[in-house]
Design a protein around this nucleic acid. Structure first.
Lengths: 367, 367
DNA sequence: CTGAAAGCGCTAACAG
DNA sequence: CTGTTAGCGCTTTCAG
């Protein structure tokens, strides 16, 4: 006899089967393999389900059984506010989301802020794989992800462990930009970079700290600069490099001020991101320095705001990076050995870099 | 005897327990209730786990057992590209993500684009609840969410079913803006609005279509306008209302052109979003119309770009909206009856609205 | 086309 | 502090 009393607990597949007097298999098939039962029976099953308020197979139970969660996790060790405000991060996110959408896969943002040392969220995440975006190489969350027995794709990291990787050649890209400046005649330069490690250090950066940087991207960009300028006969250890923990234009302004205060004679200020460069532009303006006549300023990333400002920078395909990461993770293909995708970059010669004035004058009037 | 051969399948809690010669409970406790066993034993368990490559309790199995997924789903029936490019949507997303982060909860983006009629993703999502942002009231994905036996919060929707709600009073806010314009003397106006239903209709909107709009937000804003102008003696059915499916400045430009072509005599162009208004500004400029001298233009949302442009608009707290939605969903408190949160808005009197020229002239020279 | 059996990997009482 | 007992709700061979 049917029992259609109010049950606090919603119906289950089993209770539905009992109600119908069929086996659980049949009910399961009604949902997952419509061709395995008569249309008539299927209709009856679905209708009874509706009547009983059965919402369909429980996704978690199904996941346990099928060993598929239908979602990938995104680890972003950074305040989410950052991720949603930084244009480059946003572009990455969009590309990744697009790849997930194409595959019909959910994208789960893992709550892992830098303060929160709590790695539990990584353990708790019911996902089929992880994408790790721009975290320091000593991040405990990253370590936790690598312990999980699911495929992982890291972005903006050197090759690590047995995981896929996607990124750009930050070192070469920055090397190329540096050579561009060197060719223009710049020798006295200053640098503004993003955070190099998990500890806050808003100020000068020793060469040691540069080498020991835990953010591969920043380390590589600085290395590219060091290489180019050293080759050009510049003593890199004398070049002022200023670091900022927070990544916004205000940081760029403050850092630029710090460099210019220390050495007003520099002819170029190289920033390792467009956001910082945009801030530096503000600071230059405040000081009455014309760009590029009095000071050359460069960025990195190629975000839209930079383009609008005519910034000389390196463009990297952030959206493609996200999409590539998603594809790599979701591609069921050969996963025999770790794959590595390097996207190409492009030097954008904007209007914020020019030959230093002294050089320009020499050109006019002769040496 | 221990069996430490290479097992393809990673170790399970049970196998670990067997290896150690303890019960599964003990191993479970080692992870979930450290105070329930001796530190020494716990150390042994954890160490053996590491040795065997046991990655800790499987999150899905745990979820099945505990009936908690540790994540909430976000339904955003719209191309993700949209969500990541529209400043208002982004603000909402940020607020929601912040609330989730605070609670240590994952945020899962459900892959549900408008094209994809496939509701399966909603069924597949292993989440403890849903937030539904700005979808049409006849969206099948929304229906699927409401069938799931988990708490749900809808945004920018009227009260529906037995779910919590967060939003603003779009009708009143727009009514107030309209009165502002009416007080200035505007009587001949045109309107540009966002999509009103799932079908594409880039063009004029009948009053019937306005009333039947499936996007509550747009319907309410138009209703506010209709009310205010009707009260002011304007025949609303004669007011040109133009709709655009895509939401970007290009759409705003085209729609504005359409209105201005039809009725060049209008003194104000009211747009139901800042993005559209920004587009309208471009179009006005292209036509050599000065704003506000020749044409008043208004928006809605209060995004940063609008502020920079000095747009007269209505500001709504998008970030707070997201945060409120998250809080509502994650708040374990009394869930006896559906809760409704109405956030307040603010009329921003920018520099894009002024008395129509004829009126202004009358003021100068007398009637 | 349908059903019986066998878990997926884990946690939560409740007794020792 | 530790173990036993019972499932969470579902899918999946494999026989009928």
């Amino acid at each position: 006899m049917a029992r259609s009393m109010h049950v606090r607990r919603p119906a289950t597949l089993a209770s539905l089967a009992a109600e119908l007097g069929v086996s659980r298999t049949t009910v399961s098939n009604a949902y997952n393999r419509p061709d395995q039962l008569s249309p008539e029976l299927r209709r009856r099953v679905l209708e009874t389900a509706r009547r009983l308020g059965y919402p369909g197979p429980d996704p978690v139970a199904r996941s346990l059984r099928t060993r598929k969660a239908g979602a990938v996790g995104l680890l972003l060790t950074e305040n989410l506010s950052y991720a949603f405000r930084d244009p480059a991060a946003l572009g990455f996110l969009e590309g990744l989301a697009l790849a997930c959408e194409d595959a019909g896969t959910g994208l789960m943002l893992i709550p892992a802020s830098p303060e929160r040392e709590d790695v539990a969220a990584v353990h708790r995440a019911g996902v089929d794989g992880f994408v790790v975006y721009s975290v320091p190489d000593d991040d405990p969350h990253l370590a936790a992800v690598l312990e999980r027995p699911v495929p992982t794709v890291v972005c903006d990291q050197p090759d690590i462990g047995n995981v896929d990787r996607v990124g750009i050649d930050d070192r070469s890209a920055m090397y190329e930009l540096a050579q561009h400046l060197i060719a223009m005649g710049h020798r006295r330069v200053g640098v503004v970079c993003m955070r190099l490690a998990r500890d806050r250090n808003d100020g000068y950066v020793s060469v040691d700290r540069q080498h020991a940087a835990h953010f591969h991207v920043q380390r590589a960009r600085l290395a590219g600069l060091a290489m180019a300028f050293s080759e050009a006969g510049v003593d890199w250890s004398k070049v002022p490099v200023v670091e900022r923990f927070d990544h916004n234009t205000a940081s760029g302004e403050a850092a630029a001020a710090q460099v210019l205060d220390r050495d007003p004679s520099i002819t170029a200020l190289i920033c390792t991101s467009d956001i910082l460069a945009l801030g530096a532009m503000n600071e230059a303006k405040r000081r009455g320095l014309r760009v590029p006549e009095d000071l050359t300023i460069t960025g990195f990333d190629g975000i839209q705001e930079a383009e609008r400002a005519g910034l000389t920078t390196v463009r990297q395909p952030v959206l493609e990076k996200g999409r590539a990461a998603g594809k790599l993770l979701l591609d069921v293909g050969e996963r025999t050995r770790p794959r590595s995708v390097n996207l190409s970059t492009e030097l954008i010669t904007g209007t914020t870099a020019a030959a230093p004035r002294t050089i320009a004058e020499e050109r006019w009037f002769g040496p």
